[in-house]
Amino acid sequence: MKPPQPTVTIGIPAYNAGRTLEAALDSALAQTFDHGFEIVIVDDQSSDLTYAIALEYAFRFPRIVRCFRQEHAGVATARNRVLQEARGTYITWLDADDRYRPFKLTFSFSQLYQAINALGHRNIIAYGDYTFNGKIHHARALLEDPMGNLLTGQLNGYLWTTLAPIEIYRNLGGFRAELHRSEDQDLLVRFLRSGGIFQHVSGAPQIDYTFQTTGRAGADVENSFRFLLDEYRSEYEKLPEYKRYIARRLWEVSGFYQSERKWEDMWRCRGEALASCFEEVFPRLMGAISAEINNKIDAAEKRIMAAKK
């Protein structure tokens, strides 16, 4: 029996996701969706079992799952490959560490479809609620000012919450291959600039997102931040507290460097943050310095006490 022509493509870019890919695929397969869907996995030349797992699922579900492998080129390129291979008229995404709930496709498709019919055009992306480490994240209010919230990161550019007519991605020329992070945020900003509209998907959240900070390199975070800043400076400058936002993000980036023990980069970002918004950063800086000094004093005291004994 022929599978139904896929209406929706679920794109999964995967890199060294051997530990979580199976659960993600299980959740993507377990959809009550009635109009046909396919799953396209693009492995970014993982060094673990990712591709083997993808192959097994493709073998078990030949009518639904297809997988491809590319030379290591980053997530944006992997996403572009998904766009190339997709057969669906609509596309959504899934990252290997996230899970769909059973009505993810059903809810977002029916509401996107209604919005397209109501508005008479297809430049619409459905955006649903999700749980973030178990806590429900409501998007409705944030979607009232999508551009501002997207730029400040309040509205996350998580593509797995979305469902969109696939031509939106193609018309925008796909993802920027040079971005190794925030390629999703970048694409959604361009989508809004092209006059696109977000449609909120109501109903219970249909994705469970597990956030992990591990494996995020400070340099990648900084580069993608600077790229967006340069690219959309005019948009950022419209934000009410633009300087304060820049300072906050730079402080965040310095945190990544701190955990990597890259002190020079950490101080460089902290200094730049201070220059961007003194009021925002100075208290943080003093807090960090005094905490550090207090730690040193405590340690010294302990050593003295130990020596006395």
Binding site: D26, A30, Q31, T32, F61, I64, R101, P102, F103
Partner: peptide, 13 residues
């Protein structure tokens, strides 16, 4: 999962 029925059996909650 053992039966590879992820597509055919959905636990809807």
């Amino acid at each position: 999962k053992r039966l590879w029925l992820q597509y055919n059996v959905v636990l809807c909650g």
